[in-house]
Design a protein around this nucleic acid. Structure first.
Lengths: 358, 358
DNA sequence: CTGTTAGCGCGTTCAC
DNA sequence: GTGAACGCGCTAACAG
């Protein structure tokens, strides 16, 4: 008892497979009579077109692949969510492939996408990702979001440097001077840009710098902050490379008996959902993550539709983070951000709101 | 300038396509000489096999589809993460399809998977999902995780009823009597089981019940708790239908000037990562979400491999939630859960730890 | 061990 | 308007 094919339908409806195809795809002229016969047969046989075969025939899979380093943490899940929304809106499917630690694995993952997707969104922190993507994809439209200067390929990057500068300047403006930075892992382009921004802003203000390397994980942020808190000349502010580390740092500081922001002010990066839920609410640099994801997907689809002629879109779109001040640096904002609802959602596209989560 | 096909490789290597196929798939006997010639041609032409064509030929896509209602919130993202880990381990890809509000849409989504995946994991809260899946998939292996009694199909369900009973009994054991419940949305099977468990446990203890309906979202939990806090005979404990609502409730209570757990104790459900990060840490019923996801995927693959003969596996696997006591019901646990690191991760499989998140 | 050929399931020219 | 044939790119029989 195998699934019915287009041939079975044609036979039962007593027409040719071509007619069945015409009816089902809606393309080509068809008599109402045959249309009806076909539909009846389809119904009777519970026929469902085989998208794999269709893809091979049309060389369109209606699927886009997302290559990313990890699925852990809210950043990536939000991004995926946004992409998924965009994909569904355009009739595309999303195939995710994560946890490619080294370049070798990532390259294999990209390779295995050929014939399976119409385009790729690559978020690889590996330095040579751009080259990899270029060489391995064999003329597959690719959108880079790996944090590197997009070279001359379509890409989207976050202005990490500018965001970091904003963070530091905000801390300075609120009277902080001993500002430490918990950086992301060495080799990660995003992490390095944020670090560079921190260093530049501090240098400009003529302040001494302190950097502890983290790994973009909550645990590493916790450890780094514990370290900083124990130092004789403890900082009066910490700028963490991302929100997860900031959250870890916040807990570490509180465990050490330090008050946030009174003793130590704290700033994160990304504005993941949890940033608003911790207490005190976390000041951070907002990237509209889900929206960025959707936008990325839509741009890739545009690229796909344009096909070869798309030499036009080779730009590197820059996403500028927006400073969101919360109680972790400014107690006065307490009232505003104390709500359990997320005010920002009201401003964003409605797709950002989850209506029926488990 | 199109991508090279197997024919191009065969031509350049001066062998037949069959030989190329043998070399590339590793199946069948091949001389070292031809192997070398083929590999050279592959290298020269930058050839990458077209997985779509291969799938059509082998009727194996090495892809499994996940149908879920939403991607919002940590529950689903954790689940997907676990599935992704399992998939990669078994050489499978994951294609996600979410936000199917009504049964119609979900059914269309399932249908569109034909020829694209080897099996399906369906997490639909729609009551008739089981039927839908059955009728629409045309002999596609399916694993149900929709919370309903799996009928006689392979499925995984959480013991929501038992978990809810545990929650209530814990609250009673810690001296609470006016225990309210913020339920999930009507029509959601998980929500209804949890509600039933609450009602049963309360009845057994001969305590009066109070139920406010939420929507499994943080915002709805916030609103429900604000409502409860304003009542003349305010509860001294709240059991929320999931962690997101519990977090919303916690913030609402704190805004109302109530102390957790002193004035109102709070229990959630799921044990999403954030449950440990809010203050006070949230007592909840732990489902090893990522692990459950991985396990589900592995089981589905087993089902796929077994193919037709798999009448054996028709069981309904039950996941039993484990009560995790944190300060939101018991201040004495403060010290233990104050750490920014997640102790539980040490106990779980290492794949649960994110090493390189953005 | 290797080459030839027939499908996998569908879309799509072309004549009719 | 309709049907027969070919091709998408690859794997798997079957001969040689």
């Amino acid at each position: 008892m195998k699934a019915a094919t287009i041939r079975d339908v044609a036979e039962r409806a007593d027409v040719s497979v071509a007619s069945v195809s015409r009816v089902l795809t809606g393309a080509g002229p068809v008599t109402e009579t045959t249309r009806k016969k076909v539909m009846e047969a389809v119904e009777a046989l519970q026929y469902v077109p085989h998208s794999g075969a269709r893809s091979l025939s049309t060389s369109k899979t209606q699927t886009i692949g997302v290559i990313l380093p990890d699925l852990y943490g809210e950043f990536f899940s939000e991004l995926i969510r946004g992409m998924d929304v965009g994909a569904r809106g355009l009739g595309y499917h999303l195939i995710v492939s994560s946890s490619h630690d080294d370049a070798e694995e990532a390259s294999a993952a990209i390779r295995s996408m050929r014939g399976r997707v119409d385009g790729l969104i690559v978020l690889s922190p590996h330095l040579d990702a751009a080259n990899l993507a270029t060489s391995l994809a064999g003329r597959l439209p690719i959108l880079l979001m790996n944090g590197g200067a997009g070279a001359d390929r379509p890409s989207i990057v976050v202005d990490n440097h500018g965001g970091a500068v904003q963070a530091v300047e905000h801390l300075i403006a609120t009277g902080r001077r001993r500002i430490a930075h918990i950086s992301g892992p060495t080799g990660n382009l995003e992490a390095e840009s944020r670090l560079a921004g921190y260093l530049e802003a501090m240098a400009r203000a003529n302040l001494p710098t302190t950097v502890v390397e983290g790994a973009f994980t909550q645990a590493s942020g916790h450890q780094a902050a514990a370290d900083l808190a124990a130092r004789p000349r403890r900082p009066d502010a910490i700028f963490a490379g991302n929100d997860m580390m900031a959250v870890g740092a916040m807990l570490a500081l509180q465990e050490a008996g330090l008050a946030v922001p009174e003793d130590v002010a704290l700033v994160g990066f990304d504005d993941v959902p949890i940033a608003e839920l911790v207490r005190p609410g976390l000041t951070t640099l907002r990237i509209r993550i889900a929206e960025t994801g959707r936008s990325a997907l839509e741009r890739l689809v545009r690229l796909i539709d344009a096909a070869g002629a798309a030499v036009a879109d080779t730009a590197c779109e820059v996403v500028r983070p927006e400073l969101v001040v919360r109680p972790s640096t400014d107690p006065a904002t307490q009232a505003r951000t104390a709500s359990g609802d997320r005010p920002r959602e009201a401003a964003d596209s409605s797709f950002l709101k989850g209506e029926n989560p488990q």
